[in-house]
């Protein structure tokens, strides 16, 4: 990937891309334990926002195809009241009575993605849709906190990130605004993004890594310069 990026950078003029996105995420912690559902017990069964941004470069390598390389930085956090420890090592047997202290989890998935975008629909048919797919290594730093703000545990899990979806090019629909943004701010494209994100973050199956994997819907906005 590095060699390819360098080679492309030498022969083409890349466009900068940057955006933010939000995914509906839930770490897969409960899938990795042999008994019980610790995450669901404390935080419920719902999903939460994985919010972040990405920036990178897009190279038009063929008439209808662009290659992208991006770095994505995101964060997921949740907190809930911990359980009172009944002293017997099993809060569940005591009815899972909530304590006055909050336990929390923060996850920071970072991924480097290389991908491809098909621009033929837009260029040839004026349909402002750009399908894309990308993937690459990912690294999720996590911290679990206990009541009073103290850290209970922390670590990191590595793996892969895969994403596939559609970009809806907005500026192509409004030529006047497109020209103005381009002239005044150097913005060449503004696109809405809808995709499916799969994070495979479990140390490649290592039992010593916290399972953070999930498949989530993701939505965002991206600018090209």
């Amino acid at each position: 990937m590095i060699a390819l990026s360098l080679a492309l950078a030498l022969v083409t003029q890349p466009a900068l891309i940057a955006g933010f996105d939000i995914s509906v995420y839930r770490p897969g912690i409960d899938r990795s334990v042999p008994a019980g559902t610790p995450y669901a017990d404390l935080f419920g069964t719902g999903r939460g926002p994985l919010v972040g941004g990405h920036f990178g470069i897009s190279w038009p390598i063929l008439t209808d195809l662009a290659l992208t390389a991006q770095l994505s930085l995101t964060h997921f956090g949740d907190s809930a009241y911990a359980f009172v420890d009944d002293g017997a090592g099993d809060a569940a047997s005591a009815g899972n009575k909530r304590s006055g202290g909050k336990t929390s989890i923060d996850i920071f998935p970072i991924s480097a993605l290389i991908g491809a975008r098909y621009t033929g629909l837009w260029k040839r048919l004026r349909v402002p849709l750009i399908p894309f797919a990308e993937g690459g290594p990912a690294h999720g730093i996590w911290l679990i906190g206990k009541g009073g703000g103290a850290e209970a545990a922390s670590g990191s899990s590595t793996g892969l990130a895969l994403r596939a979806g559609l970009l809806v090019e907005l500026l192509g629909l409004e030529p006047h605004a497109s020209r103005k943004l381009g002239e005044e701010f150097g913005v060449r494209s503004v696109a809405l993004e809808a995709s499916v994100l799969h994070l495979w973050l479990n140390g490649f199956g290592s039992a010593a890594s916290l399972e953070l994997s999930d498949t989530a819907w993701s939505f965002g906005l991206e600018l090209g310069f």
Binding site: A35, G36, Y39, A82, F83, G89, A91, T103, I144, G147
Partner: peptide, 11 residues
């Protein structure tokens, strides 16, 4: 109290 980490380990 039993926080997420302790719950995870007990599971």
């Amino acid at each position: 109290e039993e926080d997420l980490w302790e719950r995870y380990q007990r599971s």
